[in-house]
């Protein structure tokens, strides 16, 4: 029994460390696949990690007009994202960190990070920062309800908003075809694309004035501040990947954590994330970025899908 408890705590403490390493690698993997698809050789998978190390060694430059909030924001954004990613089941279900927080806390933590990110964008007073913040708020104000509806659809089936309970319910249910899950999955994928700033909503690879959203907000950052901001963005991508992979396809997660089972689950989750990353790269290569004012339409679709998911949960699944 005592060993079991130590194992749980060890897994809880290791989870953020693993994710801190894995998130940049996931971004590197997506970049690699994307460049291969575009007939380029592309940077190594390790490149985002190397970039982070280099940025941490550099001295940050802060504008004269910046308030203390500008310096504090990277730490808040990074900490809230790290906390959020810790509360998602990675390799085992009943970990202390995943049972203590539920879906609403998760969305709240992401909201906290986004709030400080937008404030930091406006703090220095450059035109680009303010523009980026206003755009980010436009996108997230529309994406957040859709995200909540998607996870509530799952929560209604599992009768709990706790992520661990939802995953455990889905594991126990086995193969069940639920129309509501299909809609929630599609909606959550659209929300994830919008929230992590990928094509067709935002382009992570450009600094073109007219189109950037996330890059515009962190334009004034340098050195370790920039590194923290980038790391937080990478963690957020991994978080959405984990949510999609482990909520909808939870097979392979360990119910009781033992080192061997944990490693097996980690390998499976890694495989799922790599597959999702490859799919994202293919989608980003085939789709064109849309105009900013089309983004509400895109998110309206996400909202409609999740709403249909909720409705079909109520209407169709009383017998399931």
């Amino acid at each position: 029994m005592n060993e079991q408890v130590t194992g749980y705590w060890l897994a809880t403490l290791l989870q953020p460390l693993v994710l801190l390493l894995a998130a940049p690698l996931l971004v590197g993997w997506i970049k690699r696949i994307k460049s291969r698809l575009q007939n380029r050789r592309g940077p190594a998978v390790m490149q985002p990690l190397r970039d982070l190390r280099k940025l941490f060694a550099k001295q940050p430059v802060v504008a004269k007009t910046a308030s203390p909030l500008f310096r504090a924001a990277p730490y808040v954004v990074f900490a809230s994202t790290l906390l959020a990613v810790t509360s998602v089941p990675l390799w085992s279900i009943w970990l202390p960190s995943t049972t203590v927080a539920d879906v609403i806390v998760l969305v709240g933590l992401l909201g906290l990070g986004r709030f400080f990110l937008a404030l930091a964008g406006m703090d220095v007073g450059t035109a680009f920062g303010g523009m980026g913040s206003s755009r980010e708020m436009l996108v997230s104000a529309l994406a957040e309800p859709a995200m909540l509806m998607a996870v509530f659809t799952l929560a209604m089936s599992a009768h709990s908003t706790n992520l661990s309970s939802i995953v455990a319910f889905n594991l126990d249910a086995g193969v069940v075809l639920r129309p509501s899950y299909l809609f929630a999955l599609l909606g959550l994928i659209l929300v994830a694309i919008a929230e992590t700033g990928r094509i067709p909503v935002d382009n992570p690879a450009t600094h073109l004035e007219l189109t950037m959203i996330h890059e515009a907000m962190i334009l004034e950052y340098s050195g370790r501040h920039l590194a923290l901001m980038e790391w937080a963005a990478q963690l957020k991508l991994a978080l959405y990947g984990l949510l999609i992979a482990n909520l909808f396809f939870p097979w392979g997660l360990a119910e009781r954590f033992t080192p061997l089972e944990g490693l097996g689950a980690l390998a499976l989750v890694g495989g799922k994330l790599l597959l999702l990353g490859a799919l994202l790269a293919v989608a980003e290569t085939t789709l064109a970025k849309m105009r900013l004012f089309r983004a509400p339409q895109f998110l309206n679709l996400a909202f409609l899908l999740t709403l249909l998911g909720l409705l079909s949960n109520v209407i169709l699944e009383s017998g399931l």
Partner: peptide, 28 residues
């Protein structure tokens, strides 16, 4: 809670997709 057989679940999924097609006509 009783479980429906898999084929009947598939019918429900198809019904939901039919509804989605109606919505896509509405939005197209």
């Amino acid at each position: 809670m009783t479980q429906l057989p898999l084929l009947e679940q598939a019918i429900l999924v198809l019904a939901a997709l039919t509804l989605l097609a109606s919505f896509s006509m509405l939005a197209q």
